[in-house]
């Protein structure tokens, strides 16, 4: 519960903000939420990472399964991940999660 609420808060607010703001707005969301919720640094990183990881990988997976993996297989060949779309979804989540996690950590450290 201690982890679930901040994860959900960061994921949901990021999802709303991303509809009109650039991709790095996820960092601002994680920063502010970690600060406001007075999260401990370790928890803040984890919650922010997981929140955006789930959001990005989830949104990507919804698009990817609707697309029968046509595009993801090609991108995963280009990058190169041997055409493995699972790895591409994982990478997508990690890229967003790392940015959000570091920002969340920063927000938590500012509070202390």
């Amino acid at each position: 519960m201690k982890l679930l609420f901040p994860i959900l808060a960061i994921a949901i607010v990021s999802a709303v903000v991303q509809n009109f703001a650039p991709w790095w707005s996820i960092a601002i969301v994680a920063f502010i939420i970690s600060y406001l919720l007075r999260l401990k640094p370790g928890l803040a990183f984890l919650a922010a990472f997981l929140g955006v990881f789930i959001l990005w990988a989830g949104v990507a997976a919804r698009l990817d399964f609707g697309n029968d993996h046509i595009l993801s297989t090609r991108i995963a060949t280009l990058f190169p991940l041997k055409g493995n779309y699972w790895l591409l979804l994982l990478l997508t989540g990690v890229v967003g999660g790392l940015v959000s996690g570091l920002a969340g950590l920063s927000g938590a450290l500012l509070r202390k």
Partner: peptide, 21 residues
């Protein structure tokens, strides 16, 4: 630019066209 590119709200995932609807 990997952030922009992987962002599922504006990056390449947006070009994944739905195949049935």
């Amino acid at each position: 630019a990997l952030g922009r590119f992987f962002d599922p709200y504006s990056g390449f995932w947006q070009n994944a066209e739905n195949t049935s609807h």
